[in-house]
Amino acid sequence: MSAPCAGSLAERVARQLGLDAGGVTGTGPDGSATLADVLWQAGRPLPAAARPPRPRAVYRTGEEEGRPTRRMEIACDAKPIRDACHAFAALSTEPPGALELVARLCGTALRDHPGLAEAFVVRPLDASPGGAGGDEDSPAEAVLTIAERSGAIRLGLEFAAGSEAEGEAFLDRLRTLCLDPRRALL
């Protein structure tokens, strides 16, 4: 793949707007001007594409080993394919109330990642008061760790004998933690 060219997007937009990017007050990590800074300086709104992405969930029903299953696929980021490792995890509700993620991994980077399978084991949702949010030791945070370390960007949850609502509840927790780009992937 080609090497990135000189000039961040913010600098290029600044040129288009006739601004000196160096003169724009920057809020970037290193003090540089971000796209938002440039556009704010120019009195332009932030484009919709600049808003954080929301995870998408797609439900599919099927049958596996004679049991009805549901698959919930979550795509939350858009990294180039080469960097994107796809993790498919089975979310089981057996015994009732318990969630166990069993990794089914596609992609060499994730497959070869040491200790990955263990990281996918989570505790029952209801075992953590208040859900999975915020707690460093929560199961969801473990998923977050995976995402950061491996660059995983897609998580598929497959749960047997569970409900769509149950999956949505878990998804909500993931949204607040590992799939929020401000807190997780970025």
Binding site: S2, P4, C5, L35, A49, A50, P52, A78, P80
Partner: peptide
């Protein structure tokens, strides 16, 4: 390659693209 590289280059600031 160029299209994907361009996307990668703007992904942080335009994550919805």
């Amino acid at each position: 390659d160029e299209a994907r590289a361009a996307h990668e280059a703007v992904r942080r600031e335009l994550p919805g693209a």
